[in-house]
Design a protein around this nucleic acid. Structure first.
Length: 358
DNA sequence: TACGTTACGGTTGAT
DNA sequence: GAATCAACCGTAACG
Protein backbone atom coordinates (compact mmCIF):
# COMPACT_ATOMS: atom_id res chain seq x y z
CA UNK A 1 0.00 0.00 0.00
CA UNK A 2 1.32 3.30 -1.01
CA UNK A 3 2.01 5.72 1.70
CA UNK A 4 1.63 9.37 1.12
CA UNK A 5 3.82 11.70 3.00
CA UNK A 6 2.38 15.06 3.62
CA UNK A 7 3.94 18.41 3.85
CA UNK A 8 3.73 20.77 6.72
CA UNK A 9 2.26 24.19 6.27
CA UNK A 10 3.14 27.34 8.10
CA UNK A 11 0.72 26.54 10.84
CA UNK A 12 2.21 23.18 11.44
CA UNK A 13 -0.59 21.32 9.83
CA UNK A 14 0.02 18.45 7.55
CA UNK A 15 -1.31 18.45 4.06
CA UNK A 16 -0.74 16.71 0.81
CA UNK A 17 -0.22 19.04 -2.03
CA UNK A 18 -2.84 18.63 -4.66
CA UNK A 19 -5.04 16.56 -2.47
CA UNK A 20 -8.09 17.67 -0.58
CA UNK A 21 -8.16 17.84 3.14
CA UNK A 22 -9.76 14.88 4.82
CA UNK A 23 -13.46 15.07 5.14
CA UNK A 24 -13.16 15.07 8.86
CA UNK A 25 -11.16 18.24 8.76
CA UNK A 26 -13.42 19.82 6.23
CA UNK A 27 -16.38 18.96 8.27
CA UNK A 28 -14.71 20.27 11.35
CA UNK A 29 -14.04 23.56 9.67
CA UNK A 30 -17.66 23.99 8.81
CA UNK A 31 -18.73 22.77 12.15
CA UNK A 32 -16.59 25.24 14.00
CA UNK A 33 -17.79 28.00 11.78
CA UNK A 34 -21.32 27.03 12.61
CA UNK A 35 -20.42 27.33 16.22
CA UNK A 36 -19.40 30.87 15.66
CA UNK A 37 -15.69 30.31 15.65
CA UNK A 38 -13.99 32.82 13.48
CA UNK A 39 -12.30 31.54 10.37
CA UNK A 40 -8.98 32.78 11.56
CA UNK A 41 -9.38 30.83 14.74
CA UNK A 42 -10.46 27.80 12.85
CA UNK A 43 -7.43 28.15 10.70
CA UNK A 44 -5.15 28.25 13.66
CA UNK A 45 -6.94 25.58 15.53
CA UNK A 46 -7.01 23.10 12.72
CA UNK A 47 -3.73 24.26 11.31
CA UNK A 48 -5.22 24.77 7.95
CA UNK A 49 -4.42 27.82 5.96
CA UNK A 50 -6.98 30.54 6.26
CA UNK A 51 -7.36 30.58 2.55
CA UNK A 52 -8.37 27.01 2.67
CA UNK A 53 -10.77 27.63 5.50
CA UNK A 54 -12.23 30.50 3.59
CA UNK A 55 -12.52 28.41 0.53
CA UNK A 56 -14.21 25.53 2.24
CA UNK A 57 -16.62 27.76 4.07
CA UNK A 58 -17.40 29.65 0.93
CA UNK A 59 -18.03 26.45 -0.86
CA UNK A 60 -20.22 25.22 1.90
CA UNK A 61 -22.18 28.43 1.91
CA UNK A 62 -22.65 28.21 -1.76
CA UNK A 63 -23.29 24.57 -2.27
CA UNK A 64 -24.11 23.18 1.11
CA UNK A 65 -21.39 20.65 0.70
CA UNK A 66 -18.15 20.34 2.52
CA UNK A 67 -16.74 17.93 0.06
CA UNK A 68 -14.18 18.87 -2.51
CA UNK A 69 -14.94 18.82 -6.15
CA UNK A 70 -14.26 15.97 -8.41
CA UNK A 71 -10.67 15.98 -9.37
CA UNK A 72 -9.51 14.95 -12.74
CA UNK A 73 -11.40 13.81 -15.69
CA UNK A 74 -12.44 15.63 -18.73
CA UNK A 75 -15.46 17.44 -19.85
CA UNK A 76 -17.92 15.38 -21.75
CA UNK A 77 -17.83 15.81 -25.42
CA UNK A 78 -20.39 18.19 -26.71
CA UNK A 79 -19.99 17.17 -30.28
CA UNK A 80 -22.17 14.17 -30.00
CA UNK A 81 -23.19 12.31 -33.10
CA UNK A 82 -26.55 13.97 -32.85
CA UNK A 83 -25.00 17.39 -32.82
CA UNK A 84 -22.74 16.51 -35.69
CA UNK A 85 -25.70 15.24 -37.58
CA UNK A 86 -27.52 18.50 -37.08
CA UNK A 87 -24.49 20.48 -38.06
CA UNK A 88 -24.23 18.49 -41.20
CA UNK A 89 -27.87 19.02 -41.91
CA UNK A 90 -27.50 22.71 -41.47
CA UNK A 91 -24.49 22.73 -43.71
CA UNK A 92 -26.19 20.71 -46.34
CA UNK A 93 -29.21 22.92 -46.21
CA UNK A 94 -27.12 26.01 -46.49
CA UNK A 95 -23.55 25.40 -47.62
CA UNK A 96 -22.70 29.00 -46.98
CA UNK A 97 -23.79 28.95 -43.40
CA UNK A 98 -21.34 30.26 -40.87
CA UNK A 99 -20.23 28.35 -37.87
CA UNK A 100 -21.73 30.91 -35.56
CA UNK A 101 -24.99 30.58 -37.39
CA UNK A 102 -24.90 26.87 -36.90
CA UNK A 103 -24.25 27.46 -33.28
CA UNK A 104 -27.24 29.72 -33.04
CA UNK A 105 -29.38 27.20 -34.79
CA UNK A 106 -28.30 24.44 -32.52
CA UNK A 107 -29.48 26.55 -29.66
CA UNK A 108 -32.62 27.69 -31.38
CA UNK A 109 -33.58 24.19 -32.38
CA UNK A 110 -32.95 22.88 -28.95
CA UNK A 111 -30.31 20.50 -30.13
CA UNK A 112 -28.02 21.99 -27.56
CA UNK A 113 -28.40 24.27 -24.68
CA UNK A 114 -26.13 27.00 -23.58
CA UNK A 115 -24.17 24.59 -21.48
CA UNK A 116 -23.28 22.11 -24.12
CA UNK A 117 -23.44 23.94 -27.34
CA UNK A 118 -20.18 23.51 -29.20
CA UNK A 119 -18.03 26.53 -29.65
CA UNK A 120 -17.74 28.15 -33.00
CA UNK A 121 -14.27 26.77 -33.32
CA UNK A 122 -15.54 23.32 -32.53
CA UNK A 123 -18.20 23.65 -35.14
CA UNK A 124 -15.63 24.82 -37.60
CA UNK A 125 -13.51 21.85 -36.80
CA UNK A 126 -16.45 19.54 -37.26
CA UNK A 127 -17.21 21.13 -40.56
CA UNK A 128 -13.65 20.77 -41.60
CA UNK A 129 -12.91 17.31 -40.31
CA UNK A 130 -16.15 15.47 -40.27
CA UNK A 131 -18.38 17.22 -42.70
CA UNK A 132 -15.83 18.56 -45.05
CA UNK A 133 -16.73 16.03 -47.64
CA UNK A 134 -20.45 16.36 -48.03
CA UNK A 135 -20.40 13.82 -50.75
CA UNK A 136 -20.20 11.32 -47.98
CA UNK A 137 -22.92 12.56 -45.76
CA UNK A 138 -22.89 9.55 -43.56
CA UNK A 139 -19.24 9.58 -43.10
CA UNK A 140 -19.45 10.20 -39.43
CA UNK A 141 -22.10 7.69 -38.66
CA UNK A 142 -20.37 5.10 -40.68
CA UNK A 143 -17.27 5.40 -38.71
CA UNK A 144 -16.69 3.78 -35.46
CA UNK A 145 -18.31 5.92 -32.91
CA UNK A 146 -19.56 5.84 -29.39
CA UNK A 147 -23.22 5.24 -28.72
CA UNK A 148 -25.40 8.29 -29.04
CA UNK A 149 -25.22 10.49 -26.06
CA UNK A 150 -27.90 12.68 -24.69
CA UNK A 151 -27.35 16.29 -25.37
CA UNK A 152 -27.49 17.39 -21.87
CA UNK A 153 -25.78 20.15 -20.13
CA UNK A 154 -22.40 19.70 -18.67
CA UNK A 155 -23.66 18.84 -15.31
CA UNK A 156 -26.08 16.43 -16.71
CA UNK A 157 -23.70 14.42 -18.68
CA UNK A 158 -20.66 14.72 -16.60
CA UNK A 159 -21.35 11.58 -14.80
CA UNK A 160 -19.05 10.87 -12.07
CA UNK A 161 -16.34 8.68 -13.33
CA UNK A 162 -17.01 6.11 -10.72
CA UNK A 163 -20.63 5.80 -11.50
CA UNK A 164 -21.15 2.15 -11.67
CA UNK A 165 -17.74 1.97 -13.03
CA UNK A 166 -16.71 -0.86 -10.92
CA UNK A 167 -17.94 -4.30 -10.60
CA UNK A 168 -18.52 -5.67 -7.17
CA UNK A 169 -15.22 -7.32 -7.46
CA UNK A 170 -13.55 -4.08 -8.16
CA UNK A 171 -13.00 -4.78 -11.79
CA UNK A 172 -13.41 -1.70 -13.82
CA UNK A 173 -16.44 -1.64 -15.98
CA UNK A 174 -17.51 0.41 -18.86
CA UNK A 175 -18.71 3.74 -17.74
CA UNK A 176 -21.82 3.63 -19.72
CA UNK A 177 -23.89 6.75 -19.87
CA UNK A 178 -26.89 4.54 -20.07
CA UNK A 179 -26.05 2.82 -16.90
CA UNK A 180 -25.11 5.99 -15.21
CA UNK A 181 -28.24 7.71 -16.24
CA UNK A 182 -30.56 5.71 -14.16
CA UNK A 183 -28.53 5.37 -11.11
CA UNK A 184 -26.03 8.09 -11.49
CA UNK A 185 -26.22 11.61 -10.42
CA UNK A 186 -24.45 14.37 -12.15
CA UNK A 187 -20.95 15.11 -11.37
CA UNK A 188 -22.16 18.35 -10.01
CA UNK A 189 -21.66 16.63 -6.78
CA UNK A 190 -21.62 19.40 -4.28
CA UNK A 191 -25.27 19.36 -3.67
CA UNK A 192 -25.14 15.66 -3.26
CA UNK A 193 -22.80 15.83 -0.38
CA UNK A 194 -24.05 18.31 2.02
CA UNK A 195 -22.83 18.20 5.53
CA UNK A 196 -26.09 16.79 6.54
CA UNK A 197 -25.24 13.66 4.70
CA UNK A 198 -22.06 13.27 6.44
CA UNK A 199 -23.28 13.89 9.87
CA UNK A 200 -24.41 10.80 11.41
CA UNK A 201 -21.22 9.06 10.87
CA UNK A 202 -19.73 9.39 14.18
CA UNK A 203 -16.78 7.36 13.20
CA UNK A 204 -15.52 10.11 11.06
CA UNK A 205 -16.08 12.74 13.57
CA UNK A 206 -14.84 10.72 16.36
CA UNK A 207 -11.55 12.13 17.41
CA UNK A 208 -10.28 8.72 17.98
CA UNK A 209 -11.17 7.69 14.55
CA UNK A 210 -9.94 10.64 12.66
CA UNK A 211 -6.92 10.89 14.76
CA UNK A 212 -6.01 7.51 13.57
CA UNK A 213 -4.93 6.47 16.95
CA UNK A 214 -5.47 2.91 16.14
CA UNK A 215 -3.91 1.36 13.15
CA UNK A 216 -1.48 3.25 11.01
CA UNK A 217 -3.27 2.05 7.96
CA UNK A 218 -6.98 1.81 7.88
CA UNK A 219 -8.60 -1.14 6.40
CA UNK A 220 -11.89 0.44 5.61
CA UNK A 221 -11.42 2.76 2.78
CA UNK A 222 -12.96 5.98 1.87
CA UNK A 223 -15.82 4.25 0.26
CA UNK A 224 -17.21 3.90 3.68
CA UNK A 225 -17.30 7.56 4.15
CA UNK A 226 -18.60 8.09 0.73
CA UNK A 227 -21.19 5.48 0.96
CA UNK A 228 -22.50 7.00 4.08
CA UNK A 229 -23.00 10.21 2.29
CA UNK A 230 -24.72 8.33 -0.35
CA UNK A 231 -26.73 6.38 2.08
CA UNK A 232 -28.76 9.33 3.00
CA UNK A 233 -29.60 9.97 -0.55
CA UNK A 234 -29.95 6.84 -2.46
CA UNK A 235 -32.60 5.59 -0.19
CA UNK A 236 -34.42 8.82 -0.42
CA UNK A 237 -34.52 9.23 -4.09
CA UNK A 238 -33.32 7.04 -6.78
CA UNK A 239 -31.46 9.46 -8.87
CA UNK A 240 -28.34 9.52 -6.92
CA UNK A 241 -26.53 6.82 -8.37
CA UNK A 242 -23.22 8.33 -8.34
CA UNK A 243 -22.13 5.01 -7.48
CA UNK A 244 -18.73 4.70 -6.28
CA UNK A 245 -17.50 1.22 -6.32
CA UNK A 246 -17.86 -0.52 -3.10
CA UNK A 247 -14.41 -1.74 -3.64
CA UNK A 248 -11.96 0.73 -4.87
CA UNK A 249 -8.41 0.05 -5.71
CA UNK A 250 -7.34 3.49 -4.77
CA UNK A 251 -6.37 3.26 -1.21
CA UNK A 252 -3.75 5.85 -1.31
CA UNK A 253 -5.67 8.01 1.05
CA UNK A 254 -7.74 5.72 3.12
CA UNK A 255 -10.30 7.15 5.39
CA UNK A 256 -10.41 6.35 8.99
CA UNK A 257 -11.94 3.12 9.91
CA UNK A 258 -15.56 2.87 10.47
CA UNK A 259 -18.02 0.14 10.67
CA UNK A 260 -20.17 1.44 7.96
CA UNK A 261 -19.65 -1.44 5.72
CA UNK A 262 -23.12 -2.56 6.49
CA UNK A 263 -24.38 0.65 5.06
CA UNK A 264 -22.20 0.61 2.06
CA UNK A 265 -23.11 -2.91 1.38
CA UNK A 266 -26.56 -2.03 0.34
CA UNK A 267 -26.20 1.57 -0.51
CA UNK A 268 -24.36 2.64 -3.56
CA UNK A 269 -21.31 4.59 -2.78
CA UNK A 270 -21.30 8.24 -3.42
CA UNK A 271 -20.02 9.97 -6.41
CA UNK A 272 -17.18 11.36 -4.61
CA UNK A 273 -13.94 10.19 -5.92
CA UNK A 274 -12.29 8.00 -3.40
CA UNK A 275 -8.95 9.18 -4.36
CA UNK A 276 -9.99 12.60 -3.35
CA UNK A 277 -10.21 11.45 0.12
CA UNK A 278 -7.70 10.45 2.59
CA UNK A 279 -7.62 10.15 6.23
CA UNK A 280 -3.99 10.09 6.76
CA UNK A 281 -0.94 11.62 5.33
CA UNK A 282 1.01 8.70 6.32
CA UNK A 283 -0.12 9.76 9.66
CA UNK A 284 -3.09 10.48 11.75
CA UNK A 285 -5.54 13.06 10.71
CA UNK A 286 -5.25 14.24 14.21
CA UNK A 287 -2.09 15.90 13.26
CA UNK A 288 -4.27 18.60 11.92
CA UNK A 289 -5.72 19.28 15.20
CA UNK A 290 -4.47 21.27 17.97
CA UNK A 291 -3.35 18.93 20.65
CA UNK A 292 -5.71 18.83 23.45
CA UNK A 293 -8.52 20.25 21.53
CA UNK A 294 -11.72 18.65 22.48
CA UNK A 295 -13.16 17.57 19.25
CA UNK A 296 -15.91 15.60 20.66
CA UNK A 297 -19.28 16.66 21.63
CA UNK A 298 -19.87 20.20 21.09
CA UNK A 299 -23.21 19.28 22.37
CA UNK A 300 -24.75 21.81 20.15
CA UNK A 301 -27.60 20.95 17.97
CA UNK A 302 -27.29 22.77 14.76
CA UNK A 303 -30.08 21.25 12.94
CA UNK A 304 -31.18 23.05 9.97
CA UNK A 305 -33.73 25.63 10.86
CA UNK A 306 -37.06 24.64 9.60
CA UNK A 307 -35.93 21.35 8.34
CA UNK A 308 -37.38 19.56 11.23
CA UNK A 309 -34.41 17.42 11.10
CA UNK A 310 -32.96 15.81 14.07
CA UNK A 311 -29.62 14.25 13.98
CA UNK A 312 -29.61 10.79 15.18
CA UNK A 313 -28.57 10.26 18.65
CA UNK A 314 -26.21 12.06 20.89
CA UNK A 315 -23.34 10.37 19.26
CA UNK A 316 -23.71 12.67 16.39
CA UNK A 317 -22.67 15.55 18.40
CA UNK A 318 -21.95 17.96 15.72
CA UNK A 319 -25.11 18.44 13.86
CA UNK A 320 -24.56 21.08 11.36
CA UNK A 321 -26.73 23.92 10.47
CA UNK A 322 -28.10 23.04 7.16
CA UNK A 323 -28.39 25.43 4.43
CA UNK A 324 -31.56 27.27 3.95
CA UNK A 325 -33.41 26.04 0.98
CA UNK A 326 -33.51 29.43 -0.55
CA UNK A 327 -29.80 29.41 -0.80
CA UNK A 328 -29.92 26.41 -2.98
CA UNK A 329 -31.31 28.51 -5.72
CA UNK A 330 -28.14 30.47 -5.82
CA UNK A 331 -26.10 27.60 -6.97
CA UNK A 332 -24.34 27.75 -10.20
CA UNK A 333 -24.39 25.92 -12.33
CA UNK A 334 -27.71 24.52 -11.32
CA UNK A 335 -27.34 21.16 -9.85
CA UNK A 336 -30.16 18.83 -10.66
CA UNK A 337 -29.75 17.11 -7.41
CA UNK A 338 -29.66 20.19 -5.35
CA UNK A 339 -33.23 20.86 -6.14
CA UNK A 340 -34.19 17.67 -4.48
CA UNK A 341 -31.67 17.45 -1.85
CA UNK A 342 -33.45 19.11 0.95
CA UNK A 343 -36.45 17.01 0.53
CA UNK A 344 -34.25 14.04 0.43
CA UNK A 345 -32.48 15.16 3.48
CA UNK A 346 -35.60 15.51 5.38
CA UNK A 347 -36.36 11.99 4.50
CA UNK A 348 -33.15 10.67 5.80
CA UNK A 349 -32.66 12.79 8.79
CA UNK A 350 -34.08 10.20 10.96
CA UNK A 351 -32.04 7.53 9.41
CA UNK A 352 -30.32 5.42 11.88
CA UNK A 353 -26.85 4.73 10.78
CA UNK A 354 -25.59 1.58 12.31
CA UNK A 355 -22.06 2.79 12.16
CA UNK A 356 -22.75 5.39 14.75
CA UNK A 357 -22.62 2.70 17.29
CA UNK A 358 -19.04 1.98 16.54
C1' DT B 1 -5.66 41.45 12.65
C1' DA B 2 -9.06 39.34 9.62
C1' DC B 3 -10.19 37.66 5.38
C1' DG B 4 -11.12 37.46 0.28
C1' DT B 5 -8.51 36.57 -3.74
C1' DT B 6 -5.16 34.52 -6.64
C1' DA B 7 -0.70 32.53 -8.33
C1' DC B 8 1.48 28.46 -7.84
C1' DG B 9 2.75 23.72 -7.77
C1' DG B 10 0.65 19.63 -7.31
C1' DT B 11 -2.86 15.40 -8.21
C1' DT B 12 -6.28 13.12 -10.80
C1' DG B 13 -8.85 11.07 -14.50
C1' DA B 14 -10.66 11.20 -19.28
C1' DT B 15 -9.14 11.39 -23.87
C1' DG C 1 1.07 2.76 -21.88
C1' DA C 2 2.51 7.53 -22.23
C1' DA C 3 1.18 12.22 -23.21
C1' DT C 4 -2.00 15.80 -23.01
C1' DC C 5 -5.58 18.39 -21.15
C1' DA C 6 -8.59 20.32 -17.94
C1' DA C 7 -10.61 19.76 -13.90
C1' DC C 8 -9.58 20.01 -8.92
C1' DC C 9 -6.67 20.65 -4.58
C1' DG C 10 -4.31 23.57 -0.42
C1' DT C 11 -0.75 26.77 0.52
C1' DA C 12 1.28 31.11 0.55
C1' DA C 13 1.23 35.70 -0.36
C1' DC C 14 -0.92 39.92 -1.38
C1' DG C 15 -4.04 43.74 -0.58
Amino acid sequence: MEQTYGEVNQLGGVFVNGRPLPNAIRLRIVELAQLGIRPCDISRQLRVSHGCVSKILARYNETGSILPGAIGGSKPRVTTPNVVKHIRDYKQGDPGIFAWEIRDRLLADGVCDKYNVPSVSSISRILRNKIGNLSQPNQYENTKQPPPQPTLSYNHIYQYPYSNAMSPTGAKMVNSPTVASHVGIPRAWPSAHSVSNILGIRAFMDPGSIAGTEAPSYQPKIEDWSSVNRATFSTAHGVNGIDKPSIDPDIKYPQPASSLSAVSSFVPACAYSPSNQYGVYNGPAGSYMTPGHHWQSQGVSLSHPGSGMTMHGGEIHSSMAFKHPEREGDRKPPSPLSKHQHGALSNVHGLTIPASSS
